[in-house]
Design a protein around this nucleic acid. Structure first.
Length: 370
RNA sequence: GGUUGGGUUGUAGAGUGGUCAAAUACAUCAGACUGUAAAUCUGACGCCUCCGGCUUCGAUGGUUCGAAUCCAUCCCCAACCA
């Protein structure tokens, strides 16, 4: 596996959190890392240049969505996802496992795979683990995800167990189907909120983890404390020397809490979605810039922020753009929100380096309210 | 001066005797958003001591058990004719 390597550079003596380097064919990812989501081969509202400027090292895209449109063959023909979307840094494609969860009404699962009724056309497609690998091979991301079954919080033990076992079997099938050495397959730990299932899943799925493993099925409606508890439970059980990716988690407080619990990589649609809906991330928590109280506030979202939006524009102006339905509002807030998270991970790294991540968390959460 | 058509809750605009505090849209205000069916969704939007009460549909007066809706007068607005 010379195309991929994970090196731990420092472990925080206070928290156990790590700083690492994840080497991929498209460059080194410094962890811990927040990964912006670009489901349809674009981080909504942002150009690759914007993303680089705000410190994005890797972005996500999505197997299910790109399979439906434009089709993985088109992307392959275009020269692969990197070339297609003009992003020369690492890319991770999610497997479509999350769509098993989010499009629950439009799919049927059996042990062989999932039948989706396309949310675009209604046309039915059957996705197996092997098909998922074929699609992801065609897309050509650096990191590809095993096809899994993500269950919602509140699922019964039986449901969780069934999904968990299926996810393990599918991980094996993905492992056997994945031949491209330029791509690394991350298997996914499931098990819902049941610790025995989580442990079993971790142990079984680890067999298929060469240089990276993911925790899925969290932040699916449960209380944060429940998620933290699961992460605590898993913390010292992961395979050695590989990055741990917590899927779909990314509010600032969760970011810190998860990194403290040994997580290296995270992604989340939150910063870009709430940006499009008029909300900014700040040191104090959410700021709904759309609110009338900002109509004559001629200061930046955050005075000390180095992002393009804060350097050049005021809250009053951005509120005006939101109010006028101008797309620049979404762009500026997306830039700010992603920058907020990349900057937060930089501060976290700094704290890890100085063995004071727990202190940093205390300081951060003193001001930050969600 | 005359004719015709109008004046409805921020705006536009339904409603032409009871089921009307009054459709709908827009605007406004607030909230939600965590591997993106989300530039989306939810709620509020006359006033109050708000599971009930009060005051509204240009104004005033009337008809009626009951009026935004019918009648009279007046005041405005628009178009056209002099």
């Amino acid at each position: 596996m010379e195309n991929f390597e994970f090196r731990i550079k420092h472990v925080c003596k206070q928290s156990g959190a790590r700083i690492g380097e994840f080497i991929t064919p498209h460059g080194i990812i410094e962890t811990p890392v927040f990964m912006p989501v670009g489901t349809q081969a674009t981080v909504k509202g942002l150009r690759p240049e914007d993303l680089k400027e705000i410190g994005a090292q890797i972005i996500l895209s999505n197997t299910y969505h790109l399979f439906l449109r434009p089709g993985d063959k088109i992307v392959k023909e275009a020269g692969g996802l990197h070339k297609f979307m003009n992003w020369d840094k690492p890319i991770l494609t999610d497997s479509g496992g999350f769509q098993v969860f989010s499009l629950a009404d439009l799919r049927k699962i059996n042990d062989d795979g999932v039948e989706f009724s396309s949310h675009l056309s209604g046309e039915r497609f059957f996705i197996t683990p092997e098909k998922c690998m074929e699609i992801q091979n065609n897309l050509g991301a650096d990191i590809i995800m095993a096809f899994d079954e993500c269950t919602k919080a509140g699922s019964s033990y039986e449901e969780a167990k069934e999904a968990c076992e299926r996810t393990t079997k599918w991980a094996e099938r993905c492992y056997n189907a994945q031949k491209n050495e330029k791509q690394i397959l991350f298997p996914i730990i499931q098990g819902n909120m049941f610790k025995d299932l989580r442990e079993k899943s971790l142990n079984e799925v680890s067999k298929y983890a060469k240089c990276g493993i993911a925790v899925g099925g969290l932040s699916v409606g449960e209380e944060k404390e429940v998620m933290y508890d699961i992460l605590d439970f898993l913390k010292d059980k992961y395979p050695e020397n590989m990055p741990r990716y917590l899927m779909g988690v990314g509010s600032p407080d969760c970011l810190i809490e998860s990194i403290i619990r040994g997580i290296d990589m995270m992604d989340c649609v939150l910063p870009t979605r709430i940006a499009r809906n008029g909300t900014a991330l700040t040191q104090k928590g959410k700021m709904i810039v759309r609110n009338a109280k900002f109509k004559d506030d001629f200061t930046p979202i955050e005075d000390d922020c180095d992002c393009y939006a804060c350097k050049h524009f005021t809250k009053a102006y951005i509120r005006h753009l939101i109010n006028a339905d101008e797309m620049l509002a979404a762009e500026l807030l997306s830039i700010h929100n992603i920058r907020f998270l990349t900057k937060l991970t930089e501060k976290i790294k700094e704290a890890i380096l100085h063995d004071r991540l727990l202190d940093f968390k205390e300081e951060f959460l003193k001001e930050f309210k969600w």
